[in-house]
Design a protein around this nucleic acid. Structure first.
Lengths: 209, 209
DNA sequence: TAGATTGTTAATCGATTAACAATC
DNA sequence: TAGATTGTTAATCGATTAACAATC
């Protein structure tokens, strides 16, 4: 699970496997072959087997894969068996929606607090999450053992806001601001660039005339 | 621009180029070489030149690229020189946030209406956008020349809701529900799978122990 | 045991990088 | 003209697919 040699392409596919296996499990499907999964997911059976074998085989010759076991193991690889304590930085429209959208919905991801520069928001709640002033980020992170920050501040503020996090002990930033952060090596970043996404859709919409 | 042979990897990089060139333009940088851009964006100069040459050269030997021109041309490739009329389907937390987040912010993308099953929302506004009942989707799309739908309904409703769009003339779906839609060939889909994204971050957070 | 299907090696394909001639 | 830098071809690298022996 700690192998550093797993390619980015494989990692990107893992959550999708996890999602499909969760659905199959939900439908009561107990076993599945790479061929059946291939048909459902529209990827080759070969790729499925190659992907899983990056982490050591989860299947059994002549049988296939046990849906429950495979789902669970991929969950472990993704770190979903562990709890994550999160803060939100930038409690605007998008930030508040993310709190409401994620909260209680996905086990293991917990918002412990939100931060904003707007003093009128301080002390108010989004769902069950309190909004604090920005200068309390560092002590809050330490006190609550926060490992992830969700960054939903305007583009112009993103760089300096992210820098507030670098020495706090935060390990990961989920970045919704449309800049690419240049983070220190001990911090992982995952970008959700919504404008990039809609531009890609726009391209595809027009590509055939 | 209509060339179908452009690889997915190249398309995915275009919005990022567009973003960086917009920033450079904003900073008053008039020309840039692939080498300078390479340094700023952390990709190889070779890749930059290859990518641009998929669409016919935009540069000049010995000079480099004109920032404004290149920005504009990539914008055209992405279809950003055209207006897009959008509807939102599913006016919950995330949907409302997207309307507020996108509206007026990015030229060319206009929300004309929103739709929800909840009758108590019908007739109310999100920003400047009215919420309508679901059964009005088809006539609305035709009347307003809508080309894109943003799908922010719960996972369980996504499939059947998407199907309401297939024969309306809609050309593209920006899908925030965490299912992979099986759309007919005349409809493009771009997925924003937030859970997939946070799972990837979780993986990277744990991969070094 | 025979059939099925994995795990894994080999072959192919595509994308990235390097190199350099063309040319501004 | 000389220097710089693109456009483009060739080489390399990595990811995907095919094939099949191992084995349940």
């Amino acid at each position: 699970m700690e192998d550093k040699g797993i390619s980015r392409a494989v990692i990107t596919r893992l959550p999708r496997y996890y999602r499909y296996l969760g659905d199959l499990k939900h439908e009561g499907v107990e076993r599945i072959s790479s061929q059946e999964l291939s048909r459902i997911m529209h990827v080759t059976a070969s790729q499925i087997r190659q992907d899983f074998n990056n982490f050591g085989g989860f299947g059994q010759q002549g049988y296939g894969y046990n849906t429950n076991y495979l789902h669970q193991e991929i969950g472990k690889i993704l770190g979903l068996d562990k709890d994550h304590y999160m803060i939100l930085i930038g409690a605007g429209n998008l930030g508040q929606a993310i709190i409401k959208y994620m909260h209680f919905k996905k086990r293991g991801f917990y918002f412990k607090g939100a931060f904003d520069i707007d003093p009128s928001l301080h002390g108010t709640m989004v769902d069950t999450v309190m909004i604090y002033p920005m200068d309390q980020i560092a002590p809050f992170v330490k006190e609550h053992g926060i490992d992830m920050a969700v960054l939903t501040v305007p583009k112009a503020a993103a760089k300096e806001t992210a820098e507030l996090l670098y020495d706090t002990g935060i390990k990961a930033i989920w970045n919704f601001a449309h800049v690419d952060l240049e983070t220190p090596p001990h911090i992982e970043v995952e970008n959700v660039h919504l404008y990039d996404s809609i531009m890609k859709l726009s391209y595809n919409l027009h590509k055939n005339g």
